[in-house]
């Protein structure tokens, strides 16, 4: 098969280097994230493979958005590793949000290991068109 360089995946999983240390002894990874902004929303897409729907926690506090995703460690309990290319662990990442967000209307959707967060902008943060006299 001919390989197309443009189609290749860059980089691998990055382990989290958080400012605050975690109290549990477990591995934490930084989920790969895309952030896009439209006129109405700020949308985040985070890759968290292995995290089930009910194992995600999203918090917004003083403009800091924190996402935590837990994987099911028990799945790997009785298995003997023969060959490994990646390690598994929980996910955690925080973002400082710049524009004002309407906190009551945040939408979170977890599907196929991808968390989609839709953060609607608050009225005052939306761009206003100023008509010229």
């Amino acid at each position: 098969m001919e390989t197309n360089k443009k189609d290749m995946v860059p980089g691998s999983k990055h382990e989290l280097e958080a400012k605050e240390e975690k109290t549990q002894q477990a591995r934490f990874y930084k989920p790969s994230t895309d952030i896009i902004e439209t006129e109405q929303n700020l949308t985040l897409y985070m890759d968290m493979p292995g995290v089930a729907k009910n194992a995600v926690e999203v918090k917004l506090e003083k403009n800091v958005l924190t996402v935590d995703g837990r994987i099911d460690q028990d799945r790997y309990k009785n298995l003997k590793a023969q060959y490994a290319e990646y390690n598994v662990g929980h996910y955690s990442r925080s973002f400082q949000l710049s524009s004002e967000i309407n906190q009551d209307k945040i939408l979170a959707k977890m599907e196929k290991g991808v968390l989609t967060l839709t953060l609607p902008k608050a009225e005052q943060a939306k761009p206003k068109l100023i008509s010229i006299q």
């Binding site: 995946v9 980089g11 009785n78 003997k80 590793a81 290319e85 990646y86």
Partner: peptide, 15 residues
């Protein structure tokens, strides 16, 4: 890693 081109990584276990 054995894959230089960055294919999704793979783990192999014995169950």
């Amino acid at each position: 890693s054995t894959v230089a081109d960055g294919s999704p990584s793979m783990n192999i276990f014995r169950d």
